[in-house]
Design a protein around this nucleic acid. Structure first.
Lengths: 241, 241
DNA sequence: CTTCAGAATTTGTCAGACATTTGAAAATGA
DNA sequence: TCATTTTCAAATGTCTGACAAATTCTGAAG
């Protein structure tokens, strides 16, 4: 029964209830041991337990729904669709949740990027392969000299997307890039972010030029592995365990 | 003046106002030419122009705020902090698809679906595997008896998405489904569409239950192959190239 | 021209009400 | 007894109205 979970809620008094509500909810979910698929207490109960209006609860839950953390079904209830890890520390739970959303986005990106490089390795024209190799050289040189690499990186990956023959890959990856950059704790704002991921770029370019889809997929996975580990370090610095 | 922008809003009547409001807002922002940093019209004006309550507007804006698209300042207004990607997901709303665009979307879908079933085969819990197997049985029986299979098919794939542990896969695939259905030449409006793709569904369910990612990917590719060939037959006559 | 008080505007929150949908218990029928 | 239909309680979706709080604009006083 989801009813039992509401006893883990205490009235809140902090200013800016919006974020406070999310913190209280995250704590409740953890302490009540709610799992993915479980139903949350109804909005009216949550509102009553926290001593706030239902509108406030709904506004908070809307944000979570946008992030894919919960799913609501009219006439039924609200269900948990993703794991909520508060990490039990002094870290603001809200930040933590956004971090999990970033990791999910990156996982999504890994899938699309795998398909992209495979198709690029198979479908690229000779001119496109030369262009990719050239842009990779330019990118690595810029990184070596310590200059801002963002533009060159995007040009490199953009060329790969063009080589797939399906412009949708480029559009979708650009959207996901935007979403990452605009995130609350954008990894791109961290100085030196992503440097470890550049050496494998040479492997990726070589694999595409050689027309080897498996090697290209392996290379992009290596790149994304290092990016993911860097992001994990950013969003979970207190996980000393 | 942000006031001028509200004339691009027209009353909406679709069911489920929440998403309709976001679409209307995105269209307004585009048509009014609002840039990053510009102020949106006040909530009351938007609500009045759309003919909905302010609560509905606020719920929609809250999702955007959670995604970092807008920033709100109490007593001041709401400002655009990022280029609007219509609707909330990482995928753009591909409003009108026709001809080759459908095939490109299907190729995109093949990539995402491959990643989805692989993750489902690896991460699904025992209960989720049983649920998937059960839903597959129900789906095949419905198809055999000639009943409308759309709902059962969506339930089956939805269960697979849930099993990935990453709700974004479900969101993205649902959005692609919507795009296909809304398409000018929607394959779903063709009677008997997709029937050939159902026998391999059993293989897909078995592979996920057995936890075999490679077999699951092979099965989903077989399914999508038959769907693609059917779509080609539908759209090919119109393109007597 | 500068400064400051107050009005106007805008978002944040609350309360109550009704609509719509869902799920399950209860009633009905064979 | 079992299957089907009806009814009803519960939950989310939406609207209205109101007030609080913060910001910006306005205008008068110095």
């Amino acid at each position: 029964m989801s009813r039992a979970a509401i006893r883990y809620l205490e009235p809140i008094e902090a200013p800016s209830r919006g974020v406070a509500v999310l913190d209280a909810l995250a704590e409740m979910i953890e302490r009540a041991g709610l799992q993915v698929g479980d139903r949350l207490p109804p909005e009216v109960s949550i509102a009553a337990a926290l001593g706030v209006g239902r509108s406030t609860i709904r506004e908070a839950l809307n944000r979570w729904e946008g992030l894919g953390i919960i799913r609501r079904r009219r006439g039924d209830g609200t269900y948990l669709t993703a794991k909520v890890q508060t990490s039990q520390g002094p870290l603001p739970t809200m930040i933590q949740l956004e971090g999990e959303a970033i990791l999910r986005l990156l996982d999504m990106r890994r899938v699309i990027e795998s398909g992209t490089v495979r198709r690029a390795a198979q479908n690229a024209t000779l001119a496109q392969r030369q262009q990719i190799s050239r842009l990779c050289d330019a990118l690595l040189q810029i990184v070596d000299t310590g200059q801002p690499y963002r533009a060159a990186d995007m040009a490199f990956h953009s060329a790969i997307c063009d080589a797939t023959g399906n412009p949708m890959f480029g559009q979708v990856l650009a959207k996901m890039d935007d979403a990452l950059e605009r995130s609350a704790e954008s990894p791109f704002s961290v100085p030196g972010f992503g440097l470890a991921s550049f050496p494998p770029h040479r492997d990726l370019a070589n694999a595409i030029v050689a027309g080897d889809p498996d090697a290209a997929e392996a290379a992009i996975n290596t790149i994304l592995d290092s990016v993911e580990s860097e992001i994990r370090q950013i969003i979970a610095p207190a996980q000393t365990r």
